[in-house]
Amino acid sequence: MGTSTSAFRGAAAVTVDGEVVFESAETKTTWYRLASVGKHICATGILQAGLDLHTPVATWLPTMDDRVTLHHLLTHTAGVAHWQPGVPGFDIDVPMPVDERLLLMERAPLIAEPGAAWHYSSPGYALAGRVLEVASGRPYAECLNAYVFAALGATAITAGDPPADRTIAQGHRDGQPVPTNDLTSLPGTRDVWATAAGLADFTTRLHTSTLRGVRDLTGHVAMVTDEDGITTESYGYGLYAGTVDGKAAYLHPGDNPGFQTLSVWFPEQRASIAILANEETTDPLPILHDLVRLVP
């Protein structure tokens, strides 16, 4: 493979029709926090729970604006702001009990009318994850592990705390170790862990499954972009739909201090690419272009 794949700090894997065609040295042994790659997993958990996506979120979170629905949260059209300064009193780098964080998000003023515009919002997904907890009566991580990962038979991926007996990736910035935000227990945001091979396997299992609502994960809001061989046409429930080097793809990136992540599914080839870097300055796109050559 090209130097952009061989030199980066992290792990990568490629599968085609469920068979591994590339995996880096750390792919099987090191677990990474998936960051925003976990957004469509949150959506999948909500779909498996059978929640009505057009019911006002205030049904479960009474302090929320009663115009906001789960559909709005999952498509980033709720008008919920991203992190600071959009959520008054919230500092992503300051420790705070999860319930207090969520209450600040619930009460934050909307930055747009629900359904009127697309505004990327991780707090919106935290609220969606909280709805799943309230509606099911189970902790968020327990919901994902039961409704999604166990249902699919996916093993090298988990929600909540990372596996205690595995190697956990340390984040870096410019080669120096950096602490990451302690948001493990905040539902819907950065609380899913996997190896690169585990993420690729999960992606294949998800998109080839008969789980309820999987076909609803894509295509809800027009989102037209074109950059460096990657296009998007729409955003769904935690996934962009578009093309990578001319191949139809569903994808989502993620980042948090010390990490960059990217997951791509190619529906026509039944192929998956997982890139998990524990160096914050990593640009995953050159790595993706190297790896996509392995997709037929």
Rank of each mutant, 00 (worst) to 15 (best):
P163Y: 08
C143M: 09
E142P: 01
C143V: 15
S122L: 05
P97M: 07
A126S: 14
A141Q: 03
G115N: 01
A159G: 06
D161L: 14
L152K: 05
A159W: 04
M105W: 13
V134Q: 09
V148I: 10
A146T: 15
E106F: 12
L104K: 14
A128T: 06
V148P: 00
N145Q: 10
D165N: 15
A112L: 02
P114V: 05
T158N: 00
M105Q: 11
A112V: 06
H119F: 12
L152H: 03
R107N: 13
P123Y: 07
P123L: 03
H119N: 10
L104H: 11
E142L: 08
L103K: 09
E100F: 08
L132V: 10
A151F: 11
I157E: 01
A126E: 07
G129A: 08
R130A: 05
G160T: 08
V98R: 14
E133V: 11
G115Y: 02
P123W: 07
Y147K: 12
A116W: 10
A146I: 09
P162D: 04
A154R: 04
D161R: 13
E106R: 13
A108T: 11
A108E: 07
V148S: 03
P163T: 05
G129N: 04
Y125G: 02
R107Y: 08
Y120G: 02
T158M: 00
I157N: 01
G153V: 07
Y120K: 07
V131E: 00
A108W: 09
D99E: 15
A150P: 00
I111V: 15
Y140K: 02
D165G: 08
G137P: 09
R130Q: 15
C143P: 00
L127N: 04
E106C: 15
S122E: 06
S121T: 12
A154I: 07
Y125N: 05
G115K: 00
G160I: 06
G115I: 04
S121P: 06
G160H: 05
L144H: 04
E142S: 13
P123D: 02
L103F: 01
A146H: 11
G137K: 12
T155N: 02
E113L: 13
A156R: 11
A108L: 08
A156W: 00
F149Q: 01
Y125W: 13
A117Y: 11
S121H: 10
A141S: 13
N145K: 05
G153S: 03
E113A: 15
A159L: 08
S122A: 14
P162L: 06
E113H: 10
